[in-house]
Nucleic acid binder design. Structure first.
Lengths: 226, 226
DNA sequence: CGGCATGGTTTGTGATCACATCCATTCTAT
DNA sequence: ATAGAATGGATGTGATCACAAACCATGCCG
């Protein structure tokens, strides 16, 4: 593809060239997004050749992306190597909820001193979009906006390792969340989100921790009851 | 290897047959162990072909094992695809320590009601082995026994998802831990471990949480100072 | 009519190859 | 002599192939 490299004096050695994020990377991101947003139901079976065909690639990048997602708990690997989206037991859901309840208040507390007004404003806007999604009974949109709301806040904590760990938990809950929010069509206005915004504005860390914890545990309480 | 499959009427269809854990799985376990125990220094470069040659395999299983470890944060992937063992920044170490300080007390508290006498006894024996490793200035042995001590306790919490999450944190700290314990040759008797055992015997959950938290933060405080 | 063997088909695994890129050494020109 | 370019080796990526195990469904026999 590079016609004559000797003729050009390396026009853009490390320029912001479109860059090719590597096929397996794009595949990974795509699958990860679909899983976290709950577009795949729990227990859905996937095949390497099927994924490869769907994305017009060979099995190799599909294998790498799937292996990565399995390592993060986003997919389950049966003994014979078959991959499915996880069907979580009640105990596992409770554990993941407990982890969220441990980590998210900590991230919120770390973000609090750095939460300037513009951020709170954008969070309020995001909250409105969540209400919209609820109005339209758009489960995937609801999950996406809800996660964006939390992520936008936690990004201010400047704690990438914690956030990465939390996102893998969200990933594992993805398919199950969809199964839940798809069932309960009751409009659930982001009540706790308003409490979070109030605590942020007041600079009240204990109240913020409580509000975040309440939001997490409330949303996930429905899951264990099944 | 299967001489004549047609002659035998499938003697053990799903028996606990030794089974071949698949080459990439063995490779993954081996590398993971070496990383978590700190046998590889931070920043060590690895190559797929090098790993493949070392284990007498092709690049394919090496790629899968490495990809999995990268996904768990046990290895770092440079922009050009080169893999190295991570060299953690002080901020990242602080985050990982904070995560340990959040999760480990919770796991200990959940294990407490299930911690019968035999377990406490085995933990005390493990503690003695830690003292031995300290005596011999055996860094890898120290790390292994220390992790075994914690894992043995947390296994009783019956919380596999939490334990898995915690182990990935241990993994990420592996190379750095070795770099630390290799430097500080001062014998550090497992003081906090005795506090943990005392709290377990007394059935005192608040004291147990405090002791575990102290053990974690104490051990990791040396890392940030560098 | 029902349970089980048996066939074909699908799927994951590992090896090998072609290719683009990166890294380092070396060579050349000023 | 030194700085920059060229060249060769090394490395990751993706495709393709051969193979064994697993899965599924049909059909056979009791």
């Amino acid at each position: 593809m590079t016609v004559t490299r000797s003729s050009l004096p390396t026009p853009d050695p490390n320029l912001p060239r479109p860059n090719d994020p590597a096929a397996h990377e794009r595949l990974y991101r795509s699958l990860r997004s679909r899983i976290m947003l709950g577009e795949l139901p729990p227990g859905k079976a996937l095949t390497l050749r099927g994924i490869a065909r769907e994305y017009h690639l060979s099995m190799t990048p599909a294998r790498e992306a799937v292996r990565r997602l399995v390592a993060e708990g986003a997919l389950t690997l049966s003994a014979s190597g078959r991959v499915t989206t996880p069907a979580l037991s009640d105990e596992r859901i409770e554990e993941l909820a407990a982890l969220r309840a441990l980590i998210e208040p900590e991230l919120a507390a770390r973000a609090l001193p750095r939460a300037h007004f513009a951020l709170i404003d954008r969070l309020a806007q995001m909250n409105a979009r969540i209400a919209d999604a609820v109005e339209r009974h758009d489960a995937v949109g609801y999950i996406r906006c809800n996660l964006d709301f939390h992520r936008m806040l936690y990004l201010r904590a400047q704690a990438p390792a914690m956030l990465a760990m939390l996102e893998t938990i969200w990933l594992q809950l993805g398919p199950t969340m969809r199964a839940l929010y798809g069932r309960v069509k009751r409009n659930e206005p982001p009540r706790h989100h308003r409490m979070i915004l109030a605590a942020l504005r007041a600079g009240d860390e204990p109240a913020l921790r409580l509000a975040v914890r309440a939001d997490v545990t409330h949303g996930l309480r429905h899951l264990t009851s099944t």
